[in-house]
Design a protein around this nucleic acid. Structure first.
Length: 283
DNA sequence: CTCGATCCCTGGACGC
DNA sequence: TGCGTCCAGGGATCGA
């Protein structure tokens, strides 16, 4: 379940090997997760990678414009979302191909870029600069970068549950189920509290918890639960630091109360019923 | 505006 | 062994 730290880990791995490389050829397996796969297969070969960056949970691979001059709407980015089970590797093409590998890019250094996605909840598309701009406009600021005033405004103006707001990507982007639960536990906020009923102090505590946890998780190369592996095929280590997520029936690290699991916003939500008191029910 | 339900897809865990 | 059921949970969409 790649969230911001896992995507950032993948991006850092790719940034070390992809810039400057030319894509020589492409081979596709199943394509139902690709937007306009025929066009993508036609346009990608010949392009060179300029840079790799992250936008929320999206990976954007910037391509060097083709000669002579790019049109205003040139498709200059290969945009990838890993969904639930997406994985990217680069390496020797002679290495065994994992099941559910659906995109192969031959690179000019002899390596092969592979995209593997068991459940195909991921996405891949060629995008223009304006598509990227629309994405940034439609979605909230990056969870790592948003400042106190903007976070307070985005959260405080909504009557939705805080867990739903964190997962929704519109208030703030990059957070998924694991880091939502971890940051709410750290900030002692119940997942079903409403955004506009958090105090300014609680909102800021939550923002700090979120950013601190995300930064530490990036240092530890993300959380490997289920099958997340970075671009080198290495698992992350942050799952050892989980304090709430996946700990139903185990004791809270702060108060020894048993961690509970409830469904909020349609997702499993792990929390400490003592540290994170439930909101008062009101009609 | 916010909600839950449903769908996309596969594999692993578990009960019988 | 094998089968059925549930769960994982990112995101779009639709109706209440």
């Amino acid at each position: 379940m790649p969230e911001l730290p896992e995507v950032e880990t993948v991006v850092r791995g790719l940034r070390a090997v992809l810039p400057g490389r030319q894509i020589l050829s492409i081979r596709l397996g199943k394509t139902d997760f690709i937007d306009e796969p025929i066009l993508l297969a036609e346009l990608l070969p010949g392009h060179r990678v300029a840079d790799v960056s992250r936008c929320g949970k999206f990976i954007s691979i910037e391509l060097t414009p083709r000669e002579p001059e790019p049109s205003a709407d040139a498709r200059q980015y290969l945009v990838i979302h890993l969904g639930m089970t997406g994985r990217i590797t680069t390496g020797n093409p002679s290495e065994p191909v994992p099941a559910h590998t659906h995109v192969f890019l031959a690179l000019d250094d002899g390596n092969e870029f592979r995209y593997t996605d068991t459940r195909r909840f991921g996405q891949m598309r060629l995008a223009s600069q304006s598509w990227i701009d629309d994405l940034r406009a439609r979605w909230g600021e990056d969870a790592l970068e948003i400042n106190a005033a903007n976070f307070a405004r985005k959260i405080g103006s909504r009557a939705a549950r805080i867990k739903a707001l964190l997962l929704g990507q519109h208030a703030v982007s990059g957070i998924g189920n694991i880091y939502a639960d971890e940051s709410l536990w750290r900030a002692k906020i119940h997942p079903a509290r409403l955004g506009n009923r958090l105090s300014a102090r609680e909102a800021e505590t939550l923002r700090k918890a979120l950013q601190d946890i995300l930064k530490k998780a990036i240092v530890m190369r993300g959380s490997s639960i289920s099958d997340f592996l970075d671009a080198d095929g290495e698992p992350g280590e942050y799952q050892r630091r989980h304090r709430a997520y996946g700990r139903e029936g185990e004791r809270c690290y702060r108060c020894r109360t048993l961690i509970r699991r409830i469904i909020v916003a349609g997702r499993s939500s792990y929390f400490c019923p003592k540290c994170q008191p439930a909101p008062r029910r009101r009609k």
